[in-house]
Design a protein around this nucleic acid. Sequence first.
DNA 1: AAACAATTTCAACGGTTGTTGAAATTGTTC
DNA 2: GAACAATTTCAACAACCGTTGAAATTGTTT
Lengths: 217, 217
Amino acid sequence: MSRTGNPSKREKILDVAEELFALHGFDGVTLRQIASGAKVDVALASYHFGKKLDLFQAVFDRRAAPLNNARREALHQCQAKAGKRGPSVEQIIEAFLRPLELAQETGDPGWRNYLALIAYINNSPYWGPRMMSKLFDGLVQEFIEALRTALPGAEDEDLYWCYNNLSGALTLTLAQTGRIDKLSGGRCTSDDFEAAYDHMIPFVAAGFRKVCKKAAR
Amino acid sequence: MSRTGNPSKREKILDVAEELFALHGFDGVTLRQIASGAKVDVALASYHFGKKLDLFQAVFDRRAAPLNNARREALHQCQAKAGKRGPSVEQIIEAFLRPLELAQETGDPGWRNYLALIAYINNSPYWGPRMMSKLFDGLVQEFIEALRTALPGAEDEDLYWCYNNLSGALTLTLAQTGRIDKLSGGRCTSDDFEAAYDHMIPFVAAGFRKVCKKAAR
DNA sequence: AAACAATTTCAACGGTTGTTGAAATTGTTC
DNA sequence: GAACAATTTCAACAACCGTTGAAATTGTTT
């Protein structure tokens, strides 16, 4: 079988692993559950990916580049569209969030599981530090740099704490726990990323402006 | 042994379980690891708490009431201090967050682990819905009610999405992943709850005001 | 100190886990 | 279609899991 061989079973393993890891975490899923869900023998996961941890990493890596490209492109596009003064805070946050929604509209339901997996990893004291940095820090720093330009005079400490708030609000949304559904009596639904971002963008932008305005004069 | 027996070993098990569950999640910890950390035989955990899941629940339950009382008292106190028009958004958010910091100042390091455990559970699509509601929904609704009063004319949908943003920002902070430390090059530290809340309170308050201002006129 | 109850340890169980080597199957190349 | 390589399954391993019953220890009551 050549370089681009029959991807059906290999990809199916990644898809099922993605879904189960996002729901139960690394230790809450067994290779047999994954194999069973993919209708495949247990040993096949080891053959394709090696150890269980390597499979976990492969799932995490698979969609990182496409996602980063979409977000980076959105940032550069809104920067190009903006004048010499650069894009507004709202436009930068929008470029940070909307591609996550577009990923959903590809029709591939795996994207939603992947985003929930990112939420699991990002929120984990064990996995977070050792897995998030390599893939996402570069892009995040680009966004923070853009925000620094949009908020002249902002101090670094304020800027990073604000980003932490943004990252947290986003993470809980990506986790899709459905808790807001019950709390709001059905007025909000975790599945509705568009509504979530519609509210998150002005919310976060106002927060950045408020906290980073001190030194802005 | 009477009702308040020697708590040393039983409490030690809870302490170690709290720390390990917060770090690795329910499935990432074995009863033998907990017993080993508590310098106790494996069977003792079963004797005191029953099944592993019961121990998990016991850890989660232990500090819920003290925490809820502290937060409820903070809310009522700021409501009593405020005039007939009620407390401001900032004051309500402050009452929501600061007791989490006070809990740390009791000197009991277990509180930090407990808050990280709450972050783990709240962000988990599996555990979140089935464990958070019973213990915390009542208090959360009280806070949202206060916010509704402080933001006259706010629509429910906006209010709950804003709370979701607050909850997310808080959750990531409680998780203490240390990621902001690296991102900020040491300018921010995950351990510093005071600095986190100092930035989170104006950030979130501005967000609530912005998103909920439409109908306010 | 005898009798009793609560706590803790000991020892072991059946079941599940990740992993591996060999066999079987499928696909590709000559 | 023969020879070969890639894929997939089969079968099994040692290690570890949560749980339990019985024994041993400790604490309390009389």
